[in-house]
Design a protein around this nucleic acid. Structure first.
Lengths: 243, 243
DNA sequence: CGCAAACTTGACGCACTTCAAATGGTGTGG
DNA sequence: CCACACCATTTGAAGTGCGTCAAGTTTGCG
């Protein structure tokens, strides 16, 4: 396993300006690039802000670029011909977004909240992958992580009750979003009820009813429909059916 | 993308005996290894036959080895504390089996049918990955493929009806198993009804009822409960809800 | 042949969906 | 600052697809 030992160079003039203050420099894929590679990649990269609800790539579209998520939440979804939809993954900063070695997207990527990304052309990254085994290793590790998450979620989709599904979703968010306050777990939901339903394989109404029940049981505290607090994360975890 | 151009060496004395006749030599990960590496890996590798139903690795166990599937079907499953189970993936020859860079298994791997594998110690493979970017690239590509499949299946689990789920399963098998006859799609199911139910997030009874319906509609022909023929793969695909 | 396991079939119940209406929350213009 | 409109969410009532429980039936194996 490779070790990231570029820390000593931090602040060095060689690091591109935009990257120097980049939140993604450490956890993201850029952390394994040499300064030369960083400069190289940066020549073609561009920061973009995407408003919540806007589509980044559509299912079946050809993909011209990859990107890093710097801020926000992106939902990956699949749609059937008749309109039924399933969210198959959520991505958070500093995740890498894209499906290397496939030029047609099998899914839709859409910003759930306002999102900031750093995009670079497909060719630039693919060239860099060929040159840098560390980069490919980093990408491989992220795809293994995503595969683990996808399989966890398959258990949720296939075998959990509506109540457990909703609790599982809240638990996922609680453990992936930076909390708004220090007093435990308080956060804003990045997804609407409709999105949550599409993520859980349920209807909006069922999601709403289960949220109400969890609220009545004091497992969660809800304000403004989006703002949620979890007083006891272990109770939520238990409601999610986690061992 | 790397190109496998070792074909000219075929039959060369340097290739280990066991590998020379190996069905996995071409599609599997071994196809990107040099002959030297193949010899190296072969020193520690061992062929094993696993009877149907036997466990290869258990959920939560520490993993001592990786392997290639040479023949048969392996099911990957997750279990909740109360016994609810979900199959999260099926692997066919010549798939690589294992989760690199994680020493504790998050899932159970069990032979669905009688299965033959070629196992090698964890350390041997991990050393080789460090030396060979081509090998890591090959593994990365398989994990991307598995991720694509997992996400496809999430749509099935979350949004399809029982009928569509069963048809989707039959379609998956029909397109992944070598047919028994040349007359289109005839095969033996590698999974029992109980396994199919665990794969689809259904009960045995529901699977059975939907199979009966598909049989009555002549979309499938069933003999002996395991032997299935698909006269028109497009009708099956349509029943599965594929566009 | 006979037993056990796997599979099928039937009757009934319930969790979730569907359809419909009420409520709340947010932004806009007066 | 309020009134209104619009959308998101909640709540209610009724329907249904799948699960549960309980026989049967078939298959495979000693």
């Amino acid at each position: 396993m490779t070790d990231n030992t570029h820390r000593s160079y931090e602040g060095d003039d060689i690091v591109p300006h935009v990257c120097r203050a980049c939140e993604s420099r450490h956890g993201g894929i850029c952390s394994v690039l040499t300064h030369e590679q960083l400069v190289q990649l940066n020549k073609h990269s561009s920061r973009r802000t995407i408003e919540g609800g806007a589509e980044v790539v559509g299912q079946g579209e050809s993909v011209g670029s990859y990107s890093n998520i710097l801020r926000g939440v992106v939902k990956l979804s699949k749609m059937m011909a008749d309109g039924r939809q399933q969210i198959v993954g959520l991505q958070f900063a500093p995740d890498f977004m894209g499906r290397p070695f496939s030029h047609e997207s099998a899914l839709t990527a859409e910003a759930a909240t306002e999102t900031e990304i750093c995009a670079f052309p497909r060719a630039a990254l693919e060239r860099m992958i060929e040159q840098s085994p560390e980069l490919e290793h980093k990408l491989y590790n992220q795809s293994l992580k995503e595969l683990d998450e996808a399989r966890d979620w398959m258990l949720t989709l296939g075998r959990k009750s509506a109540r457990e599904k909703v609790a599982s979703f809240l638990y996922l968010i609680a453990t992936h979003i930076d909390p708004l306050a220090d007093d435990g777990f308080t956060f804003d939901l990045p997804l609407s009820r409709a999105d949550i339903a599409d993520f859980l394989g349920l209807t909006i109404e069922t999601v709403s009813r289960q949220m109400t029940k969890l609220r009545n049981e004091k497992i969660i505290i809800v304000e403004n429909n989006r703002h949620v607090s979890v007083p006891d994360i272990d109770r939520l975890s238990a409601a999610a059916g986690n061992d």
